[in-house]
């Protein structure tokens, strides 16, 4: 029998690669019997979704954490572009 700790590791691994058949079965059976691990799995799947949405937000919008290209860097880049065109 696998422990919850091992199952939580396998759940994470299963998000990055296809587990071997037997491990998949072990995880599935454990998750049917263990509410807490099943909950853990739902939560880490939600994390994946949240991270992607977070990135989209940071890129597109004006979140407080969303930054702008600093003015000095902007000037430097423009100069570099002009230089390289000469």
């Amino acid at each position: 029998m696998r422990t919850c700790k091992e199952i939580s590791q396998l759940v994470s691994e299963s998000m990055d690669r296809r587990l071997p058949f037997l491990q998949r079965i072990e995880v599935r059976i454990h998750l049917m019997m263990c509410k807490v691990c099943a909950r853990y799995r739902r939560q880490v799947l939600l994390l994946r979704e949240a991270f992607r949405r977070y990135a989209a937000r940071v890129e597109e919008t004006e979140l407080p954490s969303a930054a702008a290209l600093p003015p000095d860097a902007r000037d430097r880049i423009k100069r570099a572009l002009n230089e390289s065109q000469k």
């Binding site: 990135a55 597109e60 930054a67 902007r74 572009l81």
Partner: peptide, 24 residues
């Protein structure tokens, strides 16, 4: 023009990069 490029896409590219490398 390259200058207008920087104004139009600079912030977006910067945010994209900053999210991933975490250093301004």
């Amino acid at each position: 023009s390259p200058e207008a490029w920087v104004d139009q896409y600079g912030d977006y590219l910067f945010r994209y990069a900053l999210l991933r490398v975490r250093n301004s």
